[in-house]
């Protein structure tokens, strides 16, 4: 006897329930109940919530909640091949880019890579003090034999952040031009941002094999693209209405307005988005080491798995150093843009 037997009786579904109910698998709970001799007349206190499992006890035709997770899994597996067929070729270039950048960073000798990085730093920040601190940080990491993982992490961050900007800025521009698109995209962005980072590794693991670089590439991009989209949209929507009106009054085409007014005036916001995107890429690279992303994250993971405290802490420190230099370099570029407009 189950609590909710009456429900199915009253609804007249008794026949449907017992139909073929003989070969119903016997659950542990059933066995226990039988052992007690079925004498237990459940008191009001013990009334179970009418959950799927409780209803299943009353009517074996009713699905258990476990069937839900299994169904989801089956459903996913069923569309997996079709999804793969579409997604695989589209995302293949991502693997090439990640692998290519990684190969380049590893194959080039350190005495070329480090000066090139410093040169890039100078061109982005135009500040010798930042170049100096970046140089000191990288040399320090190299000195404690963390050059290779640091360079691997950086190359993944560069590739993923570049793709985020290349996709995110146009998406943000499109959103700023259409309220309807904005309403459609914002919930997706909210979801990507609030989803615990581990959770969206799950479908990716099913879709792609763990040996492919694009698996972690996609995870990083999905996570890190959000701020650059948001801030591009916001930046363009916040452009001074008076200036836009002037552009209109002087006969600018929509294209001229976009390139000569909206994007330049939104640039401080877009750059702030790029800064956040880079920082989030770095955060995700570490988590993505769970799905075979190389770099400092692997060492952190080793520290956790093997309880190698020192290895984990030093790698963690390396990540902090990378975070600081990436942040300082992009912030100084942002400050330069701001100083040039200062309104």
């Amino acid at each position: 006897m189950a609590t909710y037997d009456f429900l199915f009786e009253n609804l007249g579904l008794k026949d449907w329930c017992s139909d073929g109910g003989g070969d119903r698998p016997v659950s542990m709970a059933d066995l226990l109940a039988r052992k007690k001799g079925g004498a237990a007349e459940t008191s009001v206190w013990d009334t179970p919530f009418p959950s799927m499992d409780a209803l299943n006890e009353a009517c074996s035709k009713f699905p258990k909640s476990r069937d839900l997770t299994i169904g989801l899994e089956d459903g996913f597996l069923a569309i997996k091949d079709a999804l793969r067929f579409v997604l695989d070729p589209i995302t293949e270039p991502l693997s090439w880019m990640l692998d290519g950048a990684m190969w380049l960073a590893e194959a080039t000798p350190w005495w070329i890579v480090i000066p090139v990085l410093l040169l890039i730093t100078y061109f982005v920040s135009r500040s010798w003090s930042i170049v100096f601190s970046v140089g000191a940080s990288i040399l320090g990491l190299a000195f404690i034999d963390h050059y290779l993982p640091a360079i691997q992490t950086l190359s993944i961050v560069f590739v993923c952040a570049a793709i985020c900007v290349a996709l995110g800025v146009p998406i943000g521009i499109a959103m700023s031009r259409s309220n309807r698109l904005q309403r459609a995209v914002l919930p997706v962005l909210d979801m990507l941002q609030t989803l615990p980072t581990f959770v969206y590794l799950i479908p990716l693991i099913f879709l792609f094999s763990v040996t492919e670089s694009k698996l972690y590439g996609i995870a990083i991009i999905l996570y890190a693209i959000v701020p650059v989209i948001r801030l591009t949209d916001l930046g363009i929507r916040m452009v001074d209405k008076d200036v836009l009106e002037a552009a209109q009054a002087f006969g600018m085409t929509p294209r001229q307005k976009l390139y000569q007014v909206q994007i330049p005036l939104a640039l401080p916001n877009i750059m702030a988005g790029v800064n956040q995107t880079i920082m989030m890429s770095l955060a995700m690279v570490v988590i993505a080491s769970l799905v075979s992303a190389p770099g400092l994250g692997v060492l952190v993971l080793r520290g956790i798995r093997n309880l190698e405290l020192g290895v984990g802490l030093v790698a963690g420190l390396g990540i902090v150093i990378l975070a600081i230099i990436l942040d300082r370099v992009t912030k100084s570029a942002l400050a330069r843009v701001n100083a040039a407009q200062h309104h």
């Binding site: 008076d242 200036v243 009106e245 009054a249 006969g251 330049p264 640039l267 040039a340 407009q341």
Partner: peptide, 21 residues
């Protein structure tokens, strides 16, 4: 219309509306 705005009319605004960049 665009052609007219480019060649026949110009405009001066209360809050200047210059391009800051």
């Amino acid at each position: 219309l665009r052609d007219m705005r480019r060649k026949t009319m110009s405009m001066v605004f209360q809050h200047f509306a210059l391009l800051p960049h």
